Simulated scan of single mutants.
Amino acid sequence: MSDQATRTVVVTQRFFDEETISYLHSHGCEVRLADLPPGKADGELTEGSLVQLLADADGWIVGHARVTRALLGRLPRLQVIARRGVGYERVDTAAVADLGKVAAIAVGGNDACVADHAIALMLAVNHRLRESQMQMNTGSWAILTGADLYQKTVGIVGLGRIGRGVVQRLKGFETRILAVTNDPDAAWARQCGVEYVDLDTLLALSDVVTLHAPLTPETRMLIDAQALARMKSTAVLINTARGGLVDDAALLDALKAGRLAGAGLDVYLSESDPSYTSVTNALIALPNVVATPHSGASTREGLNRTNQIAAQCVVAVLDGGEPPAGCAIADGRHRV
């Protein structure tokens, strides 16, 4: 174990709860919360700003900042990086391992709230809640007819923890559930009433397509113009996973042309590629798009769970142990 008097944990995320701070204190850690500029997230901090914040840190609880080889090379004291979340495409895991550090994610902390959020977006888009309120704000109480989720066909792309949580929630709507996954489990599928199909079949048959796949080179732009063209014109696309899964420009074209009924979006390509900012702005201005600012995991309960898991990862590594099961994504302690 390192000298507890010098165990410094820097948190570059908002909404870090007192219970988790107390947990870190009780395990010999000084906690320093970054004073982020109003309206800014840590993903917008420069490398120089991050170095200033983290120069004397042993542990770092991070949100969306890019964890690069160049940054880590300037932080020799840093031992562990814990993401308050589960996506880690912004973490250079090879660099973490090469430099003898550990990176971890908060597995299981936000599964429930993101699954809830996906269902909320399905209902909001199908019931045209945004369009109705926009009309009411102009004085019109004309009734817009929506669409049921009840007994519809829902296609789920990706059956990890969140995708399976969506399956459980859809049971109450008596939906037919189609799924695409790289890891099929026949027994589980029979038990839950899930049909495994290929992507083309899923797109063609589904009334709602909801994305829960990780962003990898293979899944980048998975839903492009050709994929959107395979969907029903009455269908809805939901993305609470990663913006890079969808070609947002193609989605915008499909929605404007009436080739898709609507979309529920919590993530955007512009988050990783600022050249798509105008596309994002045009998407969220459409009346048949229900948009949220990558907030699907940001319930009070979900944030507290992910804070706690990230803190447990930090403490475990600083104590010379292993992060909770499934949380470690890179461990280079035995390489140096």
Score class of each variant (00 low, 15 high):
209 V>E: 01
155 G>H: 09
6 T>C: 02
144 L>C: 01
255 L>T: 05
81 I>T: 09
178 L>S: 06
236 V>W: 00
28 G>M: 03
292 T>S: 15
204 A>S: 14
148 D>L: 09
133 Q>K: 11
210 T>W: 00
191 Q>C: 13
197 V>S: 07
140 S>G: 07
196 Y>L: 12
61 I>Y: 05
213 A>F: 03
220 R>C: 05
169 R>L: 14
154 V>F: 08
112 A>K: 13
280 T>V: 00
25 H>C: 07
10 V>D: 06
305 R>Y: 10
182 N>Y: 09
159 L>A: 12
114 V>T: 08
107 V>A: 13
169 R>F: 14
75 L>W: 09
11 V>H: 03
62 V>M: 01
295 S>L: 09
230 R>Y: 12
196 Y>Q: 08
245 L>D: 02
139 G>N: 10
264 G>T: 06
147 A>I: 08
242 R>W: 04
248 D>G: 01
105 I>C: 10
177 I>K: 11
313 C>R: 00
228 L>R: 03
14 R>P: 04
59 G>V: 10
67 V>H: 00
38 P>Q: 13
240 T>G: 01
239 N>S: 01
228 L>P: 04
207 D>V: 00
159 L>C: 13
31 V>N: 07
174 E>T: 13
334 H>R: 12
198 D>H: 07
181 T>Q: 09
161 R>F: 15
11 V>P: 00
14 R>E: 15
263 A>C: 13
231 M>C: 03
332 G>T: 11
46 T>A: 04
100 G>A: 05
157 V>P: 02
113 C>M: 07
221 M>S: 08
196 Y>E: 07
267 V>A: 00
165 G>R: 09
80 V>T: 08
297 A>L: 05
48 G>A: 05
253 D>V: 14
272 S>V: 11
152 K>A: 11
162 I>V: 14
268 Y>H: 02
6 T>E: 11
27 H>Y: 01
269 L>F: 08
7 R>W: 10
6 T>V: 06
135 Q>G: 07
45 L>W: 10
139 G>K: 10
7 R>L: 12
91 V>C: 01
58 D>V: 01
114 V>W: 09
279 V>F: 04
252 L>S: 02
109 G>H: 14
119 I>S: 03
120 A>G: 14
212 H>K: 07
116 D>N: 07
72 L>Y: 02
70 A>M: 08
327 C>F: 08
72 L>Q: 05
243 G>T: 04
227 A>M: 11
120 A>Y: 10
229 A>L: 03
52 Q>I: 00
88 Y>Q: 05
